[in-house]
Simulated scan of single mutants.
Amino acid sequence: MLHLSSIRKIFQGVPDRCQMFRMFDRHAQRPNRWQDDAGALYAGEWFEIGAVDHDYMFEILPPFWMRGDMFAMREFLTDSVTSVFFALTIDGELRHFHGYCDLSDKPSPDRMRVAIVDRESRPVKAMTRTERLDHIWSATHDNYRSYAGERWPEPSRGKRTITVYGGSRGTTLSLLDDLTDEVISTKLPVHLRTLPDAIAA
């Protein structure tokens, strides 16, 4: 059950380079990886990166296009979805971001820029439940996350799954969206557990 989502933050904080490259293809285990066009799955995802990694990506290949505070990668993830990198001044600080934009929708990079600035300009740091789940998914190694396959009931197939430690019961595979608040808290880094809940925009 792969679906289109809106512009969304998928990681809290700044990942190192290894994490950054893992998040470039964080849906690698999706069903029918080589048969489907997963553009709708990736388009809209964004996260912060370091200045050094931003410049590194700029130097890999000549950009597909560059304007103002953003540039697009020449290598496309799908037919029309590619990486767009941003250098944005937010509250007087220059910060850098990566996002996947569907360039068949020409205003999508500008909408993403506006969404990033809006999200990162909030005076109180908070996370929505969706952002918490996306952070957990992004930070979990491939060996411990997957997608529900044919052994799952029909309505669950294609949904994201994650390994959960159940104490004396050992580990179990659970749907990511079904994690309880308690499990979510244990899977988040300590510094993120006490952030207040945010109302989804």
Rank of each mutant, 00 (worst) to 15 (best):
Y165Q: 07
G167V: 07
T172F: 13
D142I: 09
K159N: 11
T140L: 06
G158M: 05
L173K: 09
L173M: 10
T128P: 08
A148S: 10
R151H: 11
E182N: 04
G170N: 15
D178H: 13
T172L: 11
E182D: 05
L179T: 06
D178M: 06
R129G: 01
T130Y: 08
S168M: 15
Y144A: 03
E150S: 02
T140H: 04
D134F: 01
D181G: 12
I184T: 13
S174H: 15
A148I: 11
V183E: 15
S138E: 04
Y147F: 13
L133T: 07
R145M: 04
A139P: 06
I136D: 01
V164G: 01
I136A: 04
T128I: 08
P153G: 07
G158A: 06
I136W: 03
T130I: 12
T140V: 04
T128H: 08
G170M: 12
L179F: 07
R151T: 15
H135F: 10
W152L: 03
G170W: 13
I162T: 04
D134N: 07
S146N: 13
E131R: 00
S174M: 10
E182P: 07
T140C: 00
T130P: 01
R157C: 04
G170D: 14
R151E: 15
S174R: 10
D134C: 03
E150D: 07
G170V: 12
I184H: 11
V183S: 11
G170K: 14
Y165S: 10
R160T: 03
K159Q: 14
D178F: 08
N143I: 08
P153C: 07
L176C: 01
G167A: 05
S168K: 15
T172H: 15
L175W: 07
T180H: 02
G167N: 13
L173Y: 01
T180A: 04
S174K: 13
E131V: 08
R132V: 08
T171P: 05
H141C: 03
E150G: 03
L173W: 09
L173I: 15
L173Q: 11
G167S: 07
H141T: 04
H141A: 10
N143S: 13
Y165A: 11
S138R: 01
E150Q: 03
A148E: 11
R145F: 10
R160K: 12
D177N: 09
T161V: 06
S174A: 08
E182A: 09
A139N: 10
G149I: 08
G166T: 06
L179C: 02
S146K: 07
Y144P: 00
T163A: 14
D177Q: 12
Y144M: 10
S138H: 02
A148W: 10
E182H: 05
S146Q: 02
E154T: 14
R169F: 09
W152G: 02
G170P: 12
E131G: 03
A139R: 10
L133I: 11
E150C: 00
N143P: 01
D177M: 11
T172P: 01
P155R: 02
E131W: 03
